[in-house]
């Protein structure tokens, strides 16, 4: 990327503070996607330990039974739920569903595509992710 182009770069892309809850959802979607990808790679490594036999498998599985392991799994649960629910919202939007109808705009030009349906979808995704994470924590630490 050339400096001449004056692009914001990753820093600008990842800044969720300026454009409302939709940009926060965009940022969380990227973050949770990368997190789930990292978990997926780690999960493949984890399950590959079965090749070391039952002892090796049990040894590695103990890592997930620690406090840190529980916290990581709780974050994975939250990422998974948010990515799923928000992903459904985004997929519907990508098909042109729920983004409003074209009409002559009136000042102050509230964009119809940023309507309450999508805002409810975003807040629902965040809320469900938080509930799922708390439920996961309760199950894991309640044992």
């Amino acid at each position: 990327m050339s400096k001449d182009e004056h692009r914001e770069g990753i820093k600008g892309m990842a800044n969720p503070t300026r454009y409302g809850i939709e940009r926060v959802a965009y940022w969380l979607m990227r973050l949770s996607g990368l997190g789930l990808l990292a978990y997926f790679v780690g999960h493949i490594y984890e399950t590959s330990n079965i090749l070391r036999g039952q002892v090796g498998w049990n040894e590695f599985l103990e890592l997930t039974q620690t406090t840190e392991g529980h916290l990581v799994l709780a974050i994975v649960i939250a990422m998974c739920v948010f990515h799923t629910v928000n992903g459904i919202r985004v997929m519907l939007g990508h098909g042109g569903i729920g983004v409003g109808k074209p009409a002559r705009p009136d000042y102050p030009y509230e964009p119809a595509s940023q309507n309450y349906r999508h805002k409810i979808g975003i807040y629902s995704a965040i809320l469900l992710a938080a509930i799922a994470m708390m439920y996961g924590l309760a199950v894991m630490f309640g044992e």
């Binding site: 454009y19 939709e22 940009r23 959802a25 965009y26 979607m29 983004v99 030009y109 964009p111 595509s113």
Partner: peptide, 18 residues
Amino acid sequence: HFAGSCSQVCPKGVDPAM
């Protein structure tokens, strides 16, 4: 990716995201 920032800054109400 439907971040919608384009529509929020449009000064003419074009709503490019839509």
